[in-house]
Design a binder for these strands. Structure first.
Lengths: 335, 335
DNA sequence: GATTAACATCGAAACGTTTCGAACAGGCAT
DNA sequence: ATGCCTGTTCGAAACGTTTCGATGTTAATC
């Protein structure tokens, strides 16, 4: 491995001079700089980023922690993050947090100071770990929870408002018996969406029926299963608000198989606006949110804090949008 | 920041002893080890991974280079990679290679020895860079090209055979005028798929018509556009082999809009078996390949080479599978 | 011709670890 | 007493950079 010492020797200068030359320090003369750069070229020298990070106490790398690379809209979020990170001349590493507390990658990157900042979209990282690692020169942005702590910022989708809008929409279409197709009960997103759902019901004087509040684990298969059992119990609602699109798609499948028409017999609205939603039949009405922007905003917060570490903790909420397609029946009524 | 020196001081031992204690070296007595670990706990000490990497010349991290996190099946590949990496106690970082040669992340991680190995699925990383960085203690696995060089291994999908099977299938169904819906001409995947396509035609004594060899950039929109213009030119084929599913989906959209029935008027087969393919109507017949396994195999090769650096360069080819749904018309004929 | 300033270069310390070789203490056999 | 293990601990050098403070040169000023 060729080091800066080799370069310095060959160029006939001190190590420090070589280093200055490489870092465009104005002290070094144009002549020496050229000499050094020529040798660098000849020897194909590459600075060792690890040694540099050790000395500078900066890695110019920010970490994005995801619990699941396979998720349906994470790719959009990553693209947003990537865009801002690289436009700032920083590097991005994406780390999987799969595997919970014993995950070595998470602990290693988060606790062992290999990064300059972290963006978190992995609910299985505990709050305590986050507040522990966040510090003046290690800002953290969370996208999957509210967490009020020093040097921790949050960028969130307005789950509650979105769920409220979706439910409200179903109520306006004349539905009264509306089921909530729930994600994992301890999920932050699910909790907020449930709150919005309940608020809309309450406003319309509809009682919340826990019998038709069923849990589908945020997966297509879960949605399918749960819908199946709801059908068995003969407890079929007029309408369904699904806490995400995946489950809604599974539910539609189950309904269709049972000969129940969507939206004529049961109307359904989802949440997330994943790509698949506009392709299935009937096309899924849903609550959309700006996935890529979500990533860019979070990343901007990171860089602002990096530039001005005295920055206050911020909390940003992104708006959602009702997307009407076929599964809610609104298009049908209006014609 | 609390360092090992602080720990050593507080515990009343030498730095080296503290280090040995932390690394379970048998030299240190049980008593001292406990004393050190207690102090570690008290002070909440975390070793600095950067300093360790510098000294050990190992980062226990492997890098996965992707040109596009948003791709439709990359998430499956990543999951496969992640699984093997973490089961070996290593860390995974995923780096975007978006932006071509000037991409700093790529250069930095690849050239500046922050990693122990690399897996590459980003065609915009030039061959020269790969052979330059591959070395005895830095194995590289490519998944997006053939590249014969020392310390470079390849794990590939059998594009040619897959394309051959798909085309052959269309021919067997009685089609003679078959269009090739092409990806970027310089793409390795596209080239191989084209070869397989041509081989099938040749075998059946069908001339390759360059007029219906059209380029759709591997995107849905590209497939849609290209199909539109093919329809304008009145040069409509009996059947289409699309070099990937995305383009096939766009093409079906264009055909449907023009009132042309799939598969009755035009049969179509894609490549990749992305998730969407089984949801669209008509469901897309395609060539499937084991995406997650692709990742796990590549990663196994990495670890084998890491364990035995004298390992020969390997080249592994994964089989594909014809998946018959509705768009090719086979299901229709058989009933 | 002495004084100063500006410029270019250098040596050495530091970043936080790991690890080599030496040192020390105690126990045992000579 | 001497020598030699064995078990434990230690000091110091290294890893490849960056950066502080010092040093030497040269040219400009009085």
């Amino acid at each position: 491995m060729v080091t800066i010492r080799d370069v310095a020797n060959r160029a006939g200068v001190a190590i420090s001079t070589a280093s200055y030359a490489l870092n465009n320090d104005p002290r070094v003369s144009e002549e020496t700089r050229r000499k050094v750069l020529k040798v660098v070229e000849e020897m194909n020298y590459r600075p060792n980023a690890i040694a540099r990070s050790l000395k500078r106490k900066k890695s110019e790398t920010i970490g994005l922690f995801l619990n699941d690379f396979g998720g349906p809209f994470f790719s959009s979020v990553i693209q947003g993050v990537e865009e801002v990170v690289s436009s700032n001349g920083y590097n991005l590493v994406a780390c999987s947090t799969y595997g919970g507390n014993h995950n070595t990658t998470t602990n290693r990157f988060l606790q062992e100071k290999q990064l300059d900042a972290a963006i978190i979209l992995g609910p299985n990282i505990p709050d305590e770990l986050i507040v522990q690692v966040a510090s003046k020169d290690f800002p953290v942005v969370v996208m999957d929870r509210e967490l009020k702590a020093e040097h921790v910022h949050s960028v969130l989708v307005d789950n509650e408002q979105g769920a409220y809008t979706a439910t409200r929409h179903l109520i306006n279409l004349g539905h009264r018996k509306i089921a909530y197709l729930s994600g994992p009960v301890n999920s932050y997103n699910n909790q907020k969406r449930l709150v919005g759902f309940k608020r809309a019901l309450e406003e319309a004087d509809i009682a919340f029926q826990s019998a038709i509040n069923v849990q589908g684990h945020f997966t297509e298969h879960g949605g399918y299963q749960v819908m199946k059992s709801l059908l068995m119990s003969k407890n079929v609602p007029d309408a369904i608000f699904s806490a995400n699109d995946e489950m809604a798609i599974g539910a539609i499948q189950a309904l269709t198989e049972a000969g129940i028409r969507v939206p004529q017999d049961v109307a359904i609205v989802g949440f997330d606006d994943i790509r698949l939603s506009s392709y299935i039949r009937p096309a899924l009405s849903t609550i959309g949110h700006p996935k890529q922007e979500w990533g860019t905003v979070a990343t901007h917060v990171v860089f602002q804090t990096l530039q001005d570490p005295s920055e206050q903790s911020r909390s940003i909420m992104l708006d959602t949008e009702l997307i009407i397609r076929d599964s809610c029946g609104a298009a049908l009524q209006s014609t």
